[in-house]
């Protein structure tokens, strides 16, 4: 059997789309882990607010920052929810592209084996146009995902600043400074975890494609 170059191209694109699906799944898993951390920050911040109340006037600043960290965790959760929405749309689009590619591959083989049929050629052309549109949609989702991630990164920077400030405030907590210091250290640690996850997300080859 002769090799049809168009089949080769189609199969190579198919494997790219298949890899995209795997990459999106990994991104989604990372997002889920960040959402879990956001939930943890919320609980930690709630405990920190109670601790600050017990510490009284010496931990007023710490209390304000804990409250801000709680708001941060909610903002983060909501931003990650937005990311999940874009991910869902990207999965849909990748699946459609995979279907386009499978149909194109089989139609190409039919065209090759039948020696050429005008209606198959027309169906191929139409399906290829549709695939180009779907790939363009996928690129748009990729850009949107990248943009939302940049916004999340800025939000996480703010979280990092809040955690560092909480550390400083903890030092003024007098009798509670050890306890406050431990809590603020934990804040710093979990924000660092999120930053690490975001770095991983940004490294995904899904974003390296144009």
């Amino acid at each position: 059997m002769t090799q049809n170059p168009s089949i080769g191209i189609s199969q190579s694109r198919a494997s790219t789309a298949g890899q995209d699906l795997v990459r999106i799944v990994r991104i989604n898993e990372e997002i889920k882990s960040i959402v879990a951390v956001a939930f943890k920050i919320n609980i930690m911040a709630l405990n920190a607010i109670f601790l600050a109340k017990r510490a009284g006037t010496t931990a007023l600043g710490f209390g304000v920052l804990s409250n801000e960290l709680r708001v941060f965790s909610q903002d983060l959760k909501s931003a990650m929810g937005g990311l999940s929405g874009v991910i869902h749309e990207a999965v849909t689009e990748v699946s459609v592209v995979l279907k386009d590619q499978r149909l194109i591959s089989l139609l190409n083989r039919a065209q090759e084996e039948s020696g050429g049929n005008a209606r198959v050629a027309a169906a191929l052309e139409l399906r290829q146009k549709q695939m180009v549109e779907h790939q363009s949609q996928l690129r748009a989702h990729r850009r949107q995902l990248k943009m939302v991630m940049e916004n999340v990164a800025q939000l996480v920077e703010l979280g990092g600043v809040l955690a560092k400030s909480a550390k400083i405030e903890a030092a003024y907590g007098q009798g509670f400074s050890n306890a406050l210091g431990q809590v603020s250290g934990e804040f710093d640690g979990v924000v660092e975890d999120i930053r690490h996850s975001l770095v991983n997300l940004n490294k995904s080859e899904f974003f390296l494609q144009r």
Binding site: L106, R109, A110, E112, E113, S114, G115, N117, V120
Partner: peptide, 11 residues
């Protein structure tokens, strides 16, 4: 999977 073979034979 066998569409190409069926289509070409039919053609």
């Amino acid at each position: 999977e066998i569409f190409p073979a069926v289509f070409s034979a039919l053609s």
